[in-house]
Write a protein that binds this DNA or RNA. Structure first.
Lengths: 206, 206
DNA sequence: GTGATTGGATAGTGTTACTCTCCAATATTA
DNA sequence: TAATATTGGAGAGTAACACTATCCAATCAC
């Protein structure tokens, strides 16, 4: 398959495929001469994955590259790889000042209340802190009761996810990293729809 | 309070405050002369809300304006207002072609399986469809089992949210719209942390 | 052999979220 | 009161981003 066929197969403009190639999101094809290279199914699949990440998940090209790099070439430590993956997912929280003895007080309290591991190096901790701080600044702080409720339900979801993780290490990383990213929009949409469903039932029932 | 004091109180550059004023996110102060106006606490609070929405929630200025307009001036129909609010939240899904008899097959099937209302006019339906399609395109389709599990947990969360909705209509709209937007980053962070917690426990336990 | 296509590079485009500069009209301060 | 600073308002400038377009000589396909 030449490049124009690849673009057609993925339903993308040729210029865009060249762009992804240039940006290193898509691995090069096999050169057959100075002005020719061939591409295969793996390139088509990769383009679909790139579009899923930059489209529905809403990643920037940079962030998508970081995630893809992790999937392509994971470390042997799932925990650390997952940490790095989460770090390259939005929202990107600001780095804490290095000398702050307690840079994430809200997140630490939350995790203690939930009886979960608190590791300030993990990017999601900073994300949680800034999300809690934002809710607070906006005049809608999250009560401990709400936090416990959310935390409990999400731990149930996470347990479900973990149960279904493939055994084989490379597949496990791919599943975990992509599952974190790809299923998040589904989760948000489902919550919004659950709200709508509840509101509709209330409207009709009252 | 003059504009520079307002900017200082909100911790923002003066130019940025002027920008939000120009863009209509922040209501004007009370003019006291041709080159003077005064601002009060409501302006400080509004700036904090704007930053929460554009920062942690990740809205664009356009999207934040749409959300704020809804909070300022909601219709009397909570269901419809919630629908409009969700429509202005990311991710923005493409409009379906008007003549398609079944524009959201995956979302429809999902909602039927969950025994929830299916209303194709609701923006979250399109969002769910594109999220499911993206997961599928990326080679990680969501099984019905997973959908049921996620849907059930998120309905529990939504029920909790609804229980705590204020009775007074204006407050209810504000709670619903801002709660949808502001708590989403918290939910994502909690899921990521639950994964991390589970992975850490497994690492140590094994 | 001739016109189309290729890989590769460079430059241009439209959008977004600020940020800067300027201005004359006021305020504040000395 | 005179010198200095600040204000509201408008316009232009900027940096990042995700493409998109143009160009080129080398090579294909017919």
């Amino acid at each position: 398959m030449r490049i124009s066929a690849l673009a057609a197969a993925a339903g993308l403009p040729l210029a865009t495929v060249k762009y992804y190639l240039r940006e290193g999101l898509l691995h090069p094809g096999t050169s057959t001469s100075a002005t020719q290279a061939t591409y295969d199914e793996s390139h088509v699949r990769r383009l679909r994955l790139i579009r899923a990440l930059t489209g529905a998940v809403g990643l920037s090209v940079q962030q998508a590259r970081a995630i893809l790099a992790l999937v392509d070439d994971p470390g042997d430590d799932l925990y650390a790889t997952l940490g790095r993956a989460v770090g390259s997912l939005p929202p990107t929280a600001a780095e804490p000042s290095a000398d702050d003895p307690d840079p994430f007080p809200r997140a630490r309290a939350a995790l203690e209340a939930l009886d979960q591991v608190y590791d300030p190096r993990f990017a999601a901790v900073a994300q949680l802190e800034s999300a809690l701080a934002a809710a607070e600044a906006a005049g809608m702080p999250i009560s401990e009761e709400r936090l416990l409720e959310y935390g409990r339900r999400l731990r149930e979801i996470a347990a479900f996810d973990l149960e279904r993780m493939p055994r084989e290490p490379h597949a496990a990383v791919e599943y975990t990293v992509l599952g974190t990213a790809l299923y998040e929009p589904v989760i948000l949409a489902l919550r919004r729809l659950a709200h709508q469903d509840a509101a509709a039932r209330r409207e009709l029932g009252a």
